[in-house]
Write a protein that binds this DNA or RNA. Structure first.
Length: 259
DNA sequence: GGGCGGGCGGGAG
DNA sequence: ACTCCCGCCCGCC
């Protein structure tokens, strides 16, 4: 029986009006859609609801679209069907590594988890920040491991770039899909992991310019512009501040909590 | 320089 | 509500 036919039946019509309160099509309010798109290091399955992107998996980490849809149903309790075309803005976001204008459906998450993900989203492509930085920035400087846990539950990896959150000793750290994929993602956006590693071997985790007196995380766009003769490395931020440097306003290196 | 415990939020009973 | 227990950690011995 169609909606039009129901409308000729007073009872069915009344029920239909109760059951369909919103302007968008009933189907799209229940059924989420999925697409397969090219990501920076291979294909991605991307599911989205009426609110935005809700679930992302690298195609290589699931057996196929069927398993992806089943996993989505388990997590979100609603069906998933193929979309005719990708969500607007999805492909540009993947191309640029910037997802700030893309909409996400993060309703299933706690406030803490959302705060962590929104902060991770602010890390520019090609740069990294430590877990402790995310914790400080969201106002919970001690919640470092909780940040790791929250990132581990990121339902929309790659798009919300939890792979840009790394260990403070310069190593990439763990990743939902393994640290190898984390490294690949970082290399794909031209993070110089070899340089970071070389600096870490010399216990350098912050880089400053002796002309500007500004100290940055090594991957900060401003740190990369410092010419070699003026580049100065620091083991920790306290050391830099004691030498008269101030934290960069763009990458905002945080004071170690135990200092 | 590797191991250890502090530390916090979340989730399962 | 109140345990536990765990985690993409951190910095200090």
């Amino acid at each position: 029986m169609t909606i039009a036919e129901q409308n000729h039946d007073p009872l069915a019509g009344a029920l239909a009006r109760l059951a369909v309160p919103a302007p968008t099509s009933f189907g799209d309010r229940i059924v989420a859609r999925w697409v397969e798109v090219d990501g920076p290091v291979g294909a991605l399955y991307v599911a989205f609801t009426e609110l935005g992107v809700a679930y992302v998996r690298p195609a290589a980490t699931v057996a196929g679209a069927g398993e992806f849809a089943e996993s989505f149903r388990n997590h979100f309790g609603r069906p998933l069907r193929a979309a005719t075309h990708p969500l607007a803005g999805l492909l540009p976001a993947l191309r640029s590594g910037r997802s700030r204008t893309l909409r996400f459906d993060l309703r299933g998450l706690t406030d803490f988890e959302r705060a962590v993900l929104l902060k991770a989203q602010q890390i520019p492509a090609g740069q990294t920040r430590p877990y402790g930085w995310v914790a400080s920035e969201i106002g919970n400087p001690g919640a470092v491991r909780a940040v790791g846990s929250a990132l581990g539950r990121n339902p929309v990896p790659v798009l919300i770039p939890c792979h840009r959150v790394v260990r403070s000793d310069g190593r990439p750290g763990q990743y939902v899909f393994g640290s190898a994929l984390k490294e690949s993602l970082l290399r794909a956006e031209n993070v110089n992991l070899d340089e970071v590693r070389a600096l870490a071997a010399e216990r350098v985790f912050f880089v400053g310019s002796d002309t500007t007196g500004v100290v940055c995380f090594p991957t900060c766009a401003h740190a990369r512009r410092i010419t070699t003769p003026h580049r100065r490395g620091f083991r920790n931020l306290r050391q830099a501040v004691e030498s008269g440097y101030r934290p960069c306003r763009h990458c905002r290196p945080a004071v170690p909590e135990s200092a």
